[in-house]
Design a protein around this nucleic acid. Structure first.
Lengths: 242, 242
DNA sequence: CGAGAATTTGAAACCCATCAATGACGGTGG
DNA sequence: CCACCGTCATTGATGGGTTTCAAATTCTCG
């Protein structure tokens, strides 16, 4: 959430995905063209929560983790950023979270003032920014609903589906998902503990829903069952108990 | 969340509140001036999830409940709307939730197309709409954090603080909060059950943190303790065990 | 290869959901 | 006026899922 997905995949397909041929010619991403790519090493911080939010970023490759420190000292991960995503449109004067590189990240940077100035000139760009903000709202609501009333198993299954769709573009049986983030990152994102996330992975593996060639490489073996566990659709199709 | 608070009061005071004298002259709310007030009776629906999102609304008095039906049939309350709030800026083509009147509601209505047309003409209004959208994002993130990693007691305490701030403008010892929504509404908003919400109210009452003159009228007796239970600040001040 | 970090597994405790029942309140009709 | 009824709020008992604490194992990387 709070990030602009290249291909937004909301929890419930309420948000129609804009067909490429319908996309406005002046792409938001096109604004970054010509700027030089900046490299951020893994575990380095792109910006800190509370810093003046003076810039927007487009991620060209790699993965970022958006973190927020809770009053009790624990960490909440409010989102992950992948290739093609844009960060920074939804801030007020300060960044609301810290952005840390999970992998090596290549990104483009632009002052917010410049984006705003250009948006003032171009109505088309403006409506795109608005549209992106609305996408973020949808994503934020979906994330809330994906977590609020749901079991650990449902959350993890939904997470896997969502990551597959965002990083692979689509999900299919046999798809290999590379989870570059740690179990702790996933746990903090889903509002669970590391141990619970682990146990769910193990459970899904023993049930044959997924297989794990390594802790960070998930293969989807039973797509239907995974969707059923995620509980997003096909409510009539009960998940096999074993 | 998803609603524009007249006086946004995020969970963590990261969002500075705009002083009235600094507010732009062309208020978003001023756009609705001259339009006739429409009355919605309690339990009536203003619009349904999935309806074409053709209008924006400003609530003049009363309380609305924003609901979303989950795939498993349960209901999630994604927000409450009070006097002065505006709904509709963050939608794409369809409403993302159903809006139901909790009390009698008086509101003003305006076509989205008209708002967009005016925003195209007036840069000042435009930046205000953007600002409101960003407020919504902040509120959405705060709501997520308020619920994700937190116990039932923390959620309810945070809810009380938040409602007090939104409906009374500020919170103080002895403040009387009128909760016009039902326990079920609160439960569905916080991701809890009715019974758990009740038990927390009872617990806070027996601890002397609040008193209940009726189920819908809460008086704050120990503000410090309530804040401590909410867990927003003063982490050093441990809450008394009994 | 080796050391530290990350992941996985186990056992016990706790919190919340669920099921069940009672109590409080308001409205309606006899 | 009061008995009846439906809705909502409250309280109790129980079970399940998740957290917590602890330890073993695997992975990663210098």
């Amino acid at each position: 959430m709070y990030a602009l997905h290249a291909t937004p995949q909301p929890l419930n397909a309420r948000t129609p995905i804009l067909a490429p041929e319908l996309a406005p010619k002046l792409s938001l991403n096109a604004l970054f063209e010509g700027r030089s790519i900046e490299i951020v090493q893994p575990k380095r911080t792109l910006f800190w929560e509370g810093d003046p939010a003076s810039e927007v970023f487009e991620v060209r490759y790699g993965t970022l983790r958006l973190c927020h420190i809770l009053p009790d000292g624990r960490r909440a991960v409010v989102g992950f950023i992948f290739e093609g995503d844009v960060i920074g449109l939804s801030f007020r004067d300060k960044y609301l979270f810290t952005a840390e590189a999970v992998t090596e990240v290549g990104l483009l940077r632009m002052p917010r003032s410049r984006l705003h100035a250009m948006a003032d000139e171009m109505p088309e760009l403006r409506s795109q920014v608005l549209s992106k903000l609305r996408d973020e709202m949808c994503a934020a609501q979906d994330q809330l609903l994906a977590v609020l009333h749901r079991s650990a198993e449902q959350r993890v299954a939904t997470f896997l589906v969502s990551i597959a769709e965002r990083t692979l573009g689509a999900i299919h049986k046999g798809a290999q998902i590379h989870l570059c983030m740690s179990r702790a990152d996933i746990a903090d994102y889903l509002g669970l503990t590391v141990e619970t996330v682990c146990r769910v992975f193990t459970k899904l593996r023993t049930e044959g829903v997924i297989s794990l060639t390594s802790p960070h490489c998930v293969v989807i073996e039973k797509l239907r069952t995974l969707h059923a566990v995620a509980g997003e659709d096909e409510p009539a199709e009960a998940r096999p108990l074993h």
